[in-house]
Design a protein around this nucleic acid. Structure first.
Lengths: 139, 139
DNA sequence: TATGGCATGTCAGTATCCTGACATAGTATT
DNA sequence: AATACTATGTCAGGATACTGACATGCCATA
């Protein structure tokens, strides 16, 4: 009877390995996984605030603002210095940011494809559904 | 047709939330999740080296040695200063370390039980199997 | 024997992310 | 209108993990 690792451990293992592979693929683009996640969220929701961006990417808003500063310096994102209504500063991708994201997306998709290569299509849907159920149960 | 988040994102979401809940449960024991993982691995493999411990818990051996120093200071683990054969220093749990781990294990098990509460028993096995398949595909 | 390769432990420096705190702007409540 | 509440952005400080480098001890191979 072999040792049966708890699901939490396998979950951690899978996520760590996925992150590592993504990190390796993104090195040539000088992008960390967190930065990629940030650009990805910005494409989905242009003009989102930094705080909302932080929630999307599972970091604090302080960390997000530090990250955004780096991306600003590289010219991948844009942000007004002030806004007439409200406090939130809407952030958007620049043209170059969109280009870098596209290149990153290609590589990330390939990693994900490889990760799922051992699963049938129906299994992939089931995996997604079960993970979502886990998230809901802990929310 | 709703937006379909990639599995990598759901995976990250689940793992982040699980870690957060574990962290919250372990606060009263003054234990981080990494420290819990370390004690857990030590119970499974008494006398394991710090480098092997690091691999088990997905950190570098440098980080593990820092962590072990904290656990040593709290008297939760033991480690000889030298050994006659080889270079690896075998680390073991102290009695108090085993006690703290037991208390932590109870809380962690409860979190995992909650996470899986929405899944049938067969689904839990399937989830574990599919996550392992992902790990294998990326290894 | 001796030489190279590999694993372990450790030191130093850096990067990243976190917690705590505060000011500001909008919203809800009384 | 006045007050409390929430959300956002920002500053400061600290905790944690990482990369790079080096010495030491085992093992395989020439």
């Amino acid at each position: 009877m072999p040792y049966q690792p708890p699901i939490g451990y396998v979950l951690k293992q899978a996520q760590s390995l996925l992150r590592l592979r993504m990190e390796q693929e993104l090195v040539p683009l000088r992008l960390t996984v967190s930065q990629y996640s940030c650009l990805h969220a910005l494409k989905r929701e242009p003009g989102i605030s930094a705080a909302a961006l932080a929630r999307s990417t599972f970091v604090t808003r302080q960390s997000m603002n530090t990250m955004l500063q780096l991306l600003l310096d590289r010219g991948l994102v844009e942000r007004p210095e002030s806004v007439e209504n409200g406090r939130a500063l809407p952030t958007t991708l620049t043209a170059e940011g969109a280009n870098v994201l596209d290149a990153a997306q290609t590589r990330v998709d390939e990693v994900e494809r490889r990760m799922l290569s051992g699963l049938q299509h129906a299994d992939q849907a089931a995996l997604s559904r079960m993970l979502s159920a886990c998230v809901n149960a802990l929310s």
